[in-house]
Amino acid sequence: MYNDDQNPVPTVSLIEELTDDELANCVGGTGYINPAEQEIPGNHGTLNALGLQDNLHLYLDPDGSKRFLSDRYVKEVVADVDVQAILLGIANLPITSWKYKNQDETIRHIGPMAQDFAAIFNCGESDRFINSVDANGVALAAIQALYQKIQGQDLQINSLSQQISEIKQNLLIKSQ
């Protein structure tokens, strides 16, 4: 947790015994681009979390989880998205399994290439990175689109069920 000045507030953490290097190597660890190589206070001393110090949109809880600023009052040029088009974009987005060139052969990842993501969804600062905010937004839009499709199918099923019941009733009357 952070106070109003964005300074960390001491809390009990399950991972506070980890060094910053161990924390960064945990599943879900992240890296940040920071040409100035600024040092950021971490659990034990400083953490060279590249780019974090000047990122006004990202906050780290003491347990290492990320929070992205999403307050409506810091946003502008807000526009609705076509959730059905997002769902179609996901259907056309190549998803592959791969490894980073500098990783061990046994480590695999699954996901899209940033270039494909940027080309299909036209969001983010670069076609070399997928911003977590954008990935989350695309996933939530797709969930909304699927919900809309299910609602439409439920209406159609109910209508067809009603028609079938009426046809059965008419056949029963004719057969008597």
Score class of each variant (00 low, 15 high):
Tyr2Ile: 13
Tyr2Pro: 00
Asn3Val: 02
Gln6Phe: 12
Pro8Lys: 02
Pro8Asp: 03
Pro10Gly: 01
Thr11Glu: 10
Val12Arg: 10
Ile15Trp: 04
Glu16Arg: 02
Glu17Lys: 14
Leu18Glu: 03
Asp20Trp: 00
Asp21Pro: 00
Glu22Ser: 05
Leu23Glu: 12
Gly28Gln: 04
Gly28Asn: 08
Thr30Ser: 01
Thr30Glu: 01
Tyr32His: 06
Ile33Asp: 05
Ile33Arg: 08
Asn34Met: 03
Pro35Ser: 10
Pro35Gln: 05
Pro41Met: 01
Gly42Met: 02
Asn43Ala: 00
His44Pro: 01
His44Ala: 06
Asn48Thr: 08
Ala49Lys: 09
Gln53Pro: 00
Asn55Asp: 12
His57Asp: 09
Leu58Asn: 05
Leu60Tyr: 15
Asp61Ser: 14
Pro62Asn: 11
Ser70Asn: 07
Asp71Thr: 08
Tyr73Thr: 11
Val74Ile: 04
Lys75Thr: 12
Glu76Gln: 13
Val77Lys: 10
Val78Asn: 00
Val78Lys: 03
Ala79Gly: 03
Asp80Cys: 13
Asp82Ala: 01
Gln84Arg: 12
Gln84Trp: 02
Ala85His: 00
Ala85Pro: 02
Leu87Gln: 13
Leu87Ile: 06
Leu88Gln: 15
Gly89Trp: 07
Ile90Thr: 09
Ala91Ile: 10
Leu93Glu: 05
Thr96Lys: 14
Thr96Asn: 08
Ser97Asn: 13
Tyr100Lys: 05
Glu105Ala: 06
His109Trp: 11
His109Met: 03
Met113Ala: 11
Asp116Val: 06
Ala119Thr: 13
Ala119Gln: 15
Ile120Asp: 00
Phe121Val: 03
Asn122Thr: 13
Cys123Phe: 04
Gly124Ala: 10
Glu125Asn: 13
Glu125Leu: 11
Asp127Thr: 10
Phe129Asn: 13
Asn131Ile: 00
Ser132Met: 04
Asp134Met: 07
Ala135Glu: 02
Asn136Arg: 07
Gln144Ile: 14
Ala145Phe: 04
Gln148Tyr: 13
Ile150Lys: 15
Ile150Ser: 11
Gly152Trp: 08
Ile157Asn: 09
Ser159His: 15
Ser161Pro: 05
Ser161Val: 05
Gln163Pro: 08
Glu166Phe: 07
Glu166Gln: 14
Lys168Pro: 00
Lys168Trp: 10
Gln169Lys: 15
Leu171Pro: 08
Leu171Trp: 07
Leu171Gln: 09
Ile173Leu: 11
Gln176Val: 05
Gln176Gly: 14
